[in-house]
Amino acid sequence: MSGTPIVVIPGSAAPDAPAPATPRHLPNRGGPANPSADALKAKFAGAVQRVEVIWGETSVYVERLKLGEMVQWLHDDPSQRYDYLSDVTAVEYRDPEQPIEVVWHLRSLPYRRFLRLKVDLPLDGKTPLEVPSVWGVYKGADWMERECYDMFGIRFAGHPDLRRILMWEQYHEGFPLRKDFPLRGRFSRAEQLRQALAANPEARYSMEELTVAQAFEDLPEAMRKRLLGGERTGE
């Protein structure tokens, strides 16, 4: 019917990748770990704090500042080839003694592996809430890291444009997914509404936007001058 150029190819998995199967009867703790965990231990001896296998998923707790290097290696090394970043997020526990964990979920499409990397950020006031950005390795990390910053206040060093993404930029009630943030927000409903309505819906519809996106230099000279002179456009 559809004389279409659709081709059905069997997939790009490596020949020695395990045959996929629905996981069953996973143990709570233990079980076979992802082989990449041992490889990481061998390669970055001091930087791997511990490895846990929970419900069949391998979590590797790593040193905060070493993370960027490790992700780059996982991405590039031909025996690992973690080419797909599933997710970047964070977890804060109800117990304030427990550290905030930043979580990366990586997939190796050729070897059909799934790996979870974690970085502990203790809430002791001494450790900065900052981890290296993996944007240089995975372009897909851009918005996920922005969201993590927006919701938890965790900074990603090296991210090109770390702004709020879901909440508006003048939002100053705090970081909503932190445990000290009440479900209904810090302010009364009327105050929240007042602040929301005070926002100008056209606020970002302007050439200033471009300065944020590092595009200002590309504008024509005459236009740059006028903008620097304080002219507002688009409103």
């Binding site: 659709i6 059905v8 996929p20 199967a21």
Partner: peptide, 21 residues
């Protein structure tokens, strides 16, 4: 469904359409 299956998807006979461009 095929690379990290769940719900026994590996036992179903289906194809994964892939584009070229």
């Amino acid at each position: 469904r095929r690379d990290f299956p769940y719900l026994d998807y590996e036992t179903y006979d289906f194809e994964i359409p892939v584009g070229t461009n």
